[in-house]
Nucleic acid binder design. Structure first.
Lengths: 126, 126
DNA sequence: CTGTATCCGTTAAGATACTG
DNA sequence: CAGTATCTTAACGGATACAG
């Protein structure tokens, strides 16, 4: 399991807190929009409006919501330029980049097994 | 992006279909319960009831729902033993195992950056 | 034991409008 | 341009009951 056996504490209650936090982090991160945003930011720093274009189909609301979440977890950094109109840029932090590497692998996996999956679906749906 | 630049076809419409399918696969797979089930099945073949215990907090409904999805996409195999009471075992297929390897990396990432994230949250929430 | 179906509350998510 | 807030609808997800 994801959420088991954390080190650094001898207290049972602490271990349970750590496990539940790990699970929370996993839930935050293991969702479609978050991963697509991370993938987009992996290429380069992007503005809010650029992200909306890059991440196809995401709504204004979901984008801000997920960006706040990524910022809160320290995976993305938000830089505001006090111009008018305002300019806000988002960049992956080092932990964010590390996660991005794993997302790349999932994308690679999708490409590699695309045919297998397409075939499996046809068979199953019959 | 995950869903771009598939090869093997010269037709524009085919490319769009492939992209939307890739996105669909990504959405199926990039969700908390699916990934936790894959992680659990990575260890060994498991029965339905064993999975319910392994994947902490999952409901009967979500488990069947996600198992059907994994089966449909050819990531897990369902083997029924016609005994009474029935015995059903789930195993990862080779594509499923390949995906599991990437899930392992996400889990590893969670462990590695656990402290960073915890700290980032405290700072953000203040 | 495994699986399907139903009910029902909670949350996700789109649309829209409004502020700095 | 970026962000927040509100309203509304759809989807998610849990609990329960029942069938093979």
């Amino acid at each position: 399991m994801v959420t088991k056996r954390f080190t650094g504490s001898s207290d049972e209650a602490d271990l349970r807190r750590a496990d539940s936090l790990a699970r929370e982090i996993f839930s935050d991160v293991a969702n479609k929009w978050a991963l697509l945003i991370i993938e987009a930011l992996g290429e380069r720093t992007l503005r809010f409006s650029e992200l909306r274009n890059e991440v196809e189909g995401i709504s204004h609301k979901m984008l801000t919501q997920n960006l706040r979440m990524l910022e809160r977890n320290g995976l993305a950094e938000r830089k505001v330029y006090p111009t008018v109109p305002p300019r806000v840029e988002y960049t992956l932090t080092q932990p964010g980049q590390a996660l991005r590497a794993t997302v790349d692998l999932i994308c690679g996996w999708t490409h590699e097994y695309f045919g297998h999956i397409e075939g499996a679906r046809r068979r199953f749906d019959a």
